[in-house]
């Protein structure tokens, strides 16, 4: 089976700070793969090298067999990779509706966009009543949902999710992960960055653990759930 996403020995740095060294990772079409690790491990940087916000210093990133590590960021979105970033990066003075429309910026098929808007609102009914509200006035959980819905509006083949559960109540975390499971069931491929290791290992089929910009451990999620070292370090016993 061909890999949808293939990262090969990618390194990246911010000035002198080496953020990633020789990171390699694979994701098969239709899978949820988890990328885990503590604060500052390099998870966000990895997603941003894929989205082309952070340049790679060496290595190759292939999406659907095509090298994308030198493309401009908008070409990556056009190719079918969308990111829901961490840190509430909504267009805060625009309405929820405009945020969603911007999610479809790279698309030309009006009818398809219309249908996908209905679909996104079906996944996230909470946004439906707030279409005219300014995105900056949404609650943290609602903004998180808006970010995922906005990413879906590009009709991606691969969704990059950066800590979707960060700062949410346990109930909302459950809700978000139920939606992630639904997206998966509908056939979407997802690269999931999480600090909530237990939940991430439960929904994913394969996982990578980053430490100081390097892949420290990888394996089938099921196996990692029962791994003593993982339990000790990440699952609290």
């Amino acid at each position: 089976m061909v890999d949808l996403l293939e990262i090969e020995a990618v390194s990246a740095s911010y000035g002198r700070i080496q953020a990633l060294s020789d990171v390699s990772l694979k994701l098969q079409e239709g899978a949820i793969v988890a990328l885990l690790g503590g604060n500052g491990a390099g998870k966000t940087t990895t997603l941003n090298t894929i989205s082309r916000l952070v340049p790679v210093t060496s290595g190759v990133i292939r999406f659907d067999g095509r090298a994308i590590e030198r493309l401009p960021s908008h070409e990556v979105v056009r190719a079918g990779v969308s990111q829901a970033p961490e840190g509430r990066e909504v267009f805060k003075d625009m309405s929820v509706r405009e945020n969603l429309d911007l999610g479809a910026h790279v698309r030309r098929d009006r009818a398809g966009v219309r249908a996908d808007l209905d679909k996104a609102l079906d996944y996230f009914p909470a946004l439906k009543e707030r279409l005219r509200q300014k995105a900056g006035t949404l609650s943290g959980g609602e903004q998180q949902m808006l970010l995922i819905a906005r990413a879906l509006m590009a009709r991606p083949r691969l969704l990059l999710l950066d800590e979707p559960s960060l700062g949410l109540s346990p109930l909302l975390v459950q809700k978000i992960f139920a939606i992630i499971a639904r997206l998966h069931a509908d056939g979407l491929s997802i690269l999931l960055v999480e600090q909530n290791v237990a939940v991430a290992l439960a929904v994913s089929s394969y996982a990578y653990i980053l430490e100081n910009g390097e892949i420290a451990l990888e394996g089938r999620s099921e196996a990692l759930r029962n791994d003593e070292a993982v339990k000790r370090t990440y699952l609290g016993g």
Binding site: S51, L53, H74, S82, Q83, P85, E89, H105, R150
Partner: peptide, 14 residues
Amino acid sequence: AVGMNPKAAQLVGV
């Protein structure tokens, strides 16, 4: 969008 949040604008493909 670019004026409000250039990073987010890049992420949606502007």
